[in-house]
């Protein structure tokens, strides 16, 4: 039996070498304003020098999924993984243009933003179903992680058997609590980072190598 397993492994290695499998697509998911684009920009800038998209304090700044291909992450031990990063619109169950008006937006613009954001969520869910091989789930560690969206979305990701890393973002803020997120999702690795300041990114990259490699 062992002989068969060994042969199968060897064969799949050869086949992979000949027919190069497409790079893993890692989707950055999470509720609006968790810092998905900030983290995506940080990862892309750290490894390619580029940026992925604009950020804003108004929720739903990212309303279309954005992809950056061929990002190679490596460590000192020589481990490396090449991935595509997909920055997705914030996932939520309710989008109301009134929320944007509170940020000083004109009504027409706010309604347009709400419509685009709704399309964006549908698109993010489409990506999750078909094109994503692994997920970085972003959470704002200053907020309560026990929300309907978080529990539902992590459940959906789990049901698809996708590898997931939970990122507790905004640890640079005084009321951040990564431990609350650890408690909420003990079944997944939780990495506290500050996407804005770049704190603890090394640990995230190590975990990405381990999980998505």
């Amino acid at each position: 039996m062992n002989f068969f397993i060994r042969t199968k492994k060897r064969l799949s290695r050869y086949l992979n070498a000949f027919f190069k499998k497409r790079q893993s697509r890692i989707g950055i998911y999470g509720p609006p304003n968790a810092g998905k684009t900030t983290l995506s920009n940080r990862i892309v800038r750290d490894w390619t020098g580029d940026a992925l998209g604009p950020v804003s304090e108004i929720p739903h700044e990212t309303r279309r999924a954005r992809r950056k291909e061929g990002i190679t992450i490596s460590n000192q031990n020589g481990n490396r993984v090449t991935i595509d990063i997909v920055d997705t619109p914030g996932v939520t169950t309710k989008i109301d243009y009134q929320e944007f008006i509170e940020y000083g937006m004109e009504k027409d613009e706010a309604v347009k933003r709400a419509r685009e954001a709704t399309e964006g969520v549908a698109e993010a869910m489409h990506w999750l179903r078909e094109d994503i091989d692994g997920v970085i789930y972003m959470l704002d560690s200053t907020l309560d992680p026990f929300t309907q969206v978080n529990i539902m979305l992590v459940g959906i990701i789990e049901s698809r058997n996708l590898p997931v890393i939970i990122v507790a973002n905004k640890i640079d803020l005084p009321d951040a609590s990564a431990s609350a997120i650890r408690k909420a999702f003990p079944q997944h690795p939780v990495i506290p980072v500050s996407g804005l300041e770049g704190n603890n990114m090394e640990e995230l990259y190590e975990k990405m190598l381990e999980h998505f490699g």
């Binding site: 939520t92 169950t93 309604v111 709400a114 419509r115 969520v121 549908a122 179903r129």
Partner: peptide, 30 residues
């Protein structure tokens, strides 16, 4: 309940939407 709903998106009024993530995750059918 969310799971029993058949709609993927509810348009409450223009600019206000409710999204059924379960349904959206299941298929593209709107």
């Amino acid at each position: 309940e969310m799971y029993d709903r058949i709609e993927s998106i509810t348009v409450i009024n223009p600019g206000s939407y409710e999204l059924n993530l379960e349904k959206l995750a299941e298929s593209d059918e709107l």
